[in-house]
């Protein structure tokens, strides 16, 4: 029998019944504005791709600057621009030929918004619906995170509308309790969780004496977010045992392994695309495999939640 460090480690994984050849998933809002670019990210090594969050009606988002990189990560307040659900159906059609699973991210102001969008997208059979209840850059973006009852009502309604397509609520670190919100999602029938979205933050230009982002506040992503994300994934895993797409600040293979040990079954990457380009997916997977070989880990599944004791 070959020793583990001579074999090719098994990096396949599964989230909400979706089988992935790589645990690395393109996070929502990073490049995912069109089917062409999503398919390219898919063909360059992502295990799954998430579309830019789709809203009920067309929306332009906030003025610039709405993304900056400040040395330890990024802040963005793009403000959820969307062509609106009716204008993405053509893209959904074209995504049927994606080489990897496509997750449709959805946002809205009300339960009815979410249900309406999910019903319209359902015929195109995305691999899953991710519910963006965690955007800090829209007036009411965090409303669903404020209460277990509200999030329960949303997730259970969407579950009914989604039929057999899995539903994955995406959590915000800006909440009173990750364990309680995560547990409410589970009780409502969530198939998996995505954690986390960006953390509300601000950068001021002291010469201009103004916040740099036009929306003033923005969501923190990238390396500075990682320890917060690892904590949230750890708590959500402990509270629910649900599969998790662990997202936040992952830019290297070691980061991805850390996220998996916190309890993630798959790992979302967004801001890494700034630091390393689209090739981040292939490169990080290579680094994961190298670490696994050096540490005698045969399979990603072996180490999910390994940091819990």
């Amino acid at each position: 029998m070959k020793a583990a460090n001579e074999t090719n480690p098994d990096v396949t994984t599964e989230v909400a019944g979706i089988k992935l050849n790589s645990p690395l998933v393109l996070a929502s809002g990073i490049l995912g504005t069109s089917s062409d670019i999503l398919k390219r990210v898919a063909s360059e090594g992502a295990g799954a791709v998430t579309m830019k969050s789709i809203g009920p009606v067309e929306r332009e988002g906030h003025p610039n600057p709405n993304v900056i990189e400040f040395g330890f990560g990024m802040l963005n307040a793009v403000g959820l621009p969307t062509p609106g659900v009716d204008n993405v159906l053509q893209e959904m059609e074209e995504l049927k030929t994606s080489p990897v699973p496509v997750i449709a991210s959805v946002y809205g102001s009300t339960v009815d918004d979410f249900v309406m969008i999910v019903e319209k997208l359902k015929p195109y059979k995305p691999a899953a619906f991710e519910l963006d209840i965690s955007c800090p850059n829209k007036e009411d973006g965090l409303a669903f995170m404020a209460s277990e009852d509200v999030v329960y009502k949303l997730v259970s309604s969407v579950k009914k509308a989604a039929g057999n397509i899995p539903v994955i609520p995406k959590l915000s670190p800006n909440t009173h309790s990750i364990p309680r919100i995560a547990a409410a999602c589970k009780k409502a029938g969530a198939d998996a969780l995505c954690a986390i979205n960006t953390a509300s933050a601000m950068v001021i230009n002291i010469e201009a004496r103004k916040p740099v982002l036009a929306y003033k506040k923005g969501g923190l992503s990238g390396p500075a977010l990682k320890p917060i994300a690892v904590r949230c994934v750890y708590e959500a895993y402990q509270a629910t045992g649900l599969p998790i797409i662990g997202t936040g600040g992952v830019t290297t293979g070691r980061d991805a392994i850390e996220m998996i040990m916190a309890g993630a079954s798959a790992v979302g990457m967004g801001t890494a695309v700034y630091y390393r380009g689209i090739s981040a997916f292939r490169e990080v997977l290579g680094e994961m495999k190298e670490w696994m070989r050096n540490n005698n880990v045969r399979s990603v599944k072996e180490i999910i939640g390994a940091a819990h004791y």
Partner: peptide, 20 residues
Amino acid sequence: MRCGLGVCGSCVCGNRVVCV
């Protein structure tokens, strides 16, 4: 263009990211 950093996807043309 929004970010100019190759993340937001505003500038894509076909499957290319115009800003980077």
